[in-house]
Design a protein around this nucleic acid. Structure first.
Lengths: 217, 217, 217, 217
DNA sequence: AATGAATGAGTGTTCATTCAT
DNA sequence: TATGAATGAACACTCATTCAT
């Protein structure tokens, strides 16, 4: 269920759009790895160049500034996320519960992109204002998917949420935290993780049989 | 309920302090603010000094290195958290539900320390190994409080959690994310936030009426 | 006799050099001059850069640290000394007295390299331990040449020295002190210097006809 | 013969003149040791203060600047040298050979003051011009003693030196080099050293049986 | 005399970036 | 495209020195 989420965008060597030279790809890969481990501000162009196996000046044949590399990584991640969600919904249009579907998708996609996720959430403050606005817009439009699911479901009585936007943030925060501690090869498989979180999310927005008992509250 | 959490230790601008160096405190305050906004690596000692209104060299009368400032901030935050929890439980020993108590405390404490929380979660990777170990130990001992609550409650049939340590992480992530988006003066009061999250957390670990489902649950 | 000692390696401003970085050589020249005048510790990279006519950062394209510049200078000096001695002995294999030959060579070579000599003897303590060991080894192997000459000559009855290693140090100290006070254009020519010192050294290790009269001492 | 050279000036605790406070003496001792090991420019006031066991600011109660400490050390050394020479000649007015007497004295005095000697010869270039002139004058007046001995002895036919001032420098350099390599507890006693160097010096200025040679000498 | 805190300048080194080759 | 060398600004940190206490 998880494993059929596309990996294509990551290395980019397969798809039709070349997305820049071979070196540009290796720069992206090196920067992603280094930004994720040490943070954007703590990584120098020299380190990236060294990881790529090239002199610092060569990087500027592919990205005009360090900031462009960061923006490029985050934009590609957000676009990949949107595209993957579009694919996912296309392939399983009629799945029973849309919340379950979203959570499955989100966990699956994010567990395979720990570095991208980490960078995208940690380095927002290092984006220059204009870049921030652009990335933030795509991030919000992704979160809006979940908000819409919650809204629709709540209207239908399937879920009970006091504030769908707050609930969205709570759920996203919960799910996005996974890659910060989950390590492959531990006692829990990705499927275990998915099951546990799916259960918690589902219950967290479930119509309360006892809690906040509506009428008698 | 939220507002009675102590603020004294944080800014320390109060009266009873020894006499001499208020500067150290102002350095801590400036660094906290700047680290939270721009990140440890992106903040220079010059910026901190300038914010304090002092020459850069003067910082070194109070902290031997930049790294020491970071460690000091994080250690003080974690200790404050533990101490505040100890106070909290002392004052309300017999509260009905310990999970509810913990969540109330956590939200209340963290909403008043957005910067400390942000720095403590974002800058872990910028701690030198030995400092990291020290901070991480206190962080884990804090999370263990929640794990223990879940464990005990699950044994008593009050909660239903597949894996208390995973549930701990999920809940902590959810709650800790609040200060990243919550802004005072918005449409939601702190009390609203507390109510919403309390409800979601409670339900997320509630014995499942539907999940693991039906008759055989 | 003195003037035929090669000067080629020292300034290297000659023609046959590869092409690109003449800068490294100019850095060496500037550092040598400044270290000799003010001492390694008292000279800043900024001063060197300024003397070269370049920004401080540019120095690091040629030498990874200030310490490397010092080591490079000293190593090059010691190697040049060894090589020049090898050349010298090749060209005058059958000279009557080897002590005389050594002293002539030593004075001649050192008078042309006052700065190198000064730095090499003054800055030993500013070498990091590993560099010190390396330089010290070459220095000792140079002094061993003189010790061997004294040993052989003493065995043949040509000289009389109580302890050849102590005599070596005495002679080297005497000769090496010359560039600290000798200034070209004064009343003494290099040839005068050579004659005077040659005489003193020769006598200092001469078989004593009257002094320490052996049996009657 | 060596050991009766006065040690009084070094610690200064015995003699009538107090030469400043107890702390001032400890500052001098600390600075001497550190300057000798690492060089004036490489030693900070903080290091000296730390060695003394005091805060940096306290040093300025005893010496107005770092440069004053250096000058003080060198001046005291040179004065001690002159005074000790005066004592020495007073006590042994009629000794047979004045050159032998001078060499004995010089070796004996310098072997007991390795640090002072080292600093006095190495740090001349770190003296500010006026201080340099002052120290240099006393140094030259000390060397003049030897020059005078050589002059007188040459006139009497006891020695044969081409240029007494050059010979002075050669001899002083030879002797002054001793403390750079001599270590107590090695295979050679101070008496051995004295004997060896005395012999070499004596011969180096002896009327030449071979040099300036033969009949026409 | 000594401290603790500060200054203002300076340290060696690294930074993102540029550019002739 | 890539290199090697350079720039100009900045980095964390240290310096000698001052001064109120």
């Amino acid at each position: 269920m998880l494993d059929d989420i596309a990996t294509s965008a990551a290395d980019g060597s397969a798809s039709g759009e070349t997305k820049g030279s071979k070196t540009a790809k290796r720069v992206r890969a090196a920067a992603l790895k280094l930004f994720a481990r040490h943070g954007y501000a703590a990584v120098s162009m020299r380190q990236i160049a060294s990881e790529v196996g090239v002199q610092p000046g060569a990087l500027y044949n592919h990205f005009p500034t360090k900031q462009h590399i960061l923006k490029d990584l985050m934009l590609q991640h957000m676009r990949g996320l949107h595209d993957a969600w579009a694919d996912w919904t296309k392939q399983r249009a009629d799945t029973a519960d849309p919340l379950e579907s979203f959570v499955s998708f989100h966990i699956g996609y994010h567990l395979q992109r720990a570095d991208e996720v980490f960078v995208s959430y940690m380095e927002l403050r290092n984006l220059e204002p204009e870049n921030f606005r652009e990335i933030e817009a795509t991030r919000q439009s992704y979160e809006a998917i979940l908000t819409e699911i919650l809204n629709t479901g709540a209207a239908a009585g399937r879920y009970e949420v006091a504030d769908p936007r707050v609930a969205t943030r709570a759920i996203i925060a919960m799910l996005t935290g996974i890659p910060t501690w989950y390590r492959q090869g531990g006692s829990l498989t990705r499927h275990d993780i998915e099951t546990i979180y799916l259960d918690m999310v589902r219950k967290s927005v479930a119509p309360g049989p006892d809690q906040t008992p509506k009428g008698a509250g």
